[in-house]
Amino acid sequence: MDWDTYDAALFDLDGVLTPTAEVHMRAWRELFVDFLTTRGLTDAPYTERDYFDHIDGKPRYDGVRSFLASRGVPLADGDPTDGPDVQTVCGLGNRKNAFFAAVLADEGVLPYPGSVALLDFLAERRTAVAVVSSSRNAPAVLEAAGLAERFELVVDGTVAAQEGLAGKPSGATYVYAAQQLGVPVERAVVFEDALSGVEAGRDGGFGLVVGVDRGVGVDRLTAAGADIVVADLAELVGDGTASSTAEPRP
Rank of each mutant, 00 (worst) to 15 (best):
A21L: 10
A21R: 09
E22V: 13
E22Q: 14
E22A: 15
E22W: 12
V23R: 06
V23E: 07
V23A: 04
V23M: 12
V23K: 03
V23W: 09
H24T: 11
H24P: 10
M25T: 09
M25G: 12
M25C: 04
R26Y: 07
R26M: 11
R26A: 14
W28F: 14
W28I: 07
W28P: 11
R29T: 15
R29G: 13
R29I: 07
R29Y: 07
E30T: 14
E30H: 14
E30P: 00
E30D: 13
L31Y: 01
L31M: 09
L31V: 12
F32C: 09
F32Y: 13
F32R: 04
F32D: 05
V33D: 15
V33T: 15
V33G: 00
D34Q: 13
D34N: 14
F35Q: 05
F35R: 03
L36P: 07
L36D: 05
L36F: 08
L36V: 02
L36S: 04
L36Q: 02
T37Y: 01
T37V: 11
T37L: 08
T37G: 04
T38Y: 00
T38P: 00
R39A: 05
R39Y: 00
R39M: 02
R39W: 02
R39I: 00
G40A: 06
L41W: 03
L41C: 05
L41N: 00
L41Y: 01
T42M: 06
T42E: 13
T42N: 08
D43I: 01
D43Q: 11
D43V: 06
A44L: 08
P45Y: 02
P45L: 05
P45W: 03
P45F: 04
P45M: 03
Y46H: 09
Y46T: 07
T47Q: 12
T47Y: 03
T47M: 08
E48L: 10
E48N: 07
E48F: 06
R49V: 12
R49L: 10
R49E: 15
R49A: 15
R49C: 01
D50P: 08
D50L: 04
D50E: 08
D50A: 11
D50T: 08
Y51M: 10
Y51D: 10
Y51G: 11
Y51N: 10
F52T: 15
F52K: 06
F52R: 11
D53N: 12
D53C: 05
D53K: 03
H54N: 11
H54W: 14
H54L: 10
H54S: 08
I55F: 08
D56W: 10
D56M: 13
D56L: 11
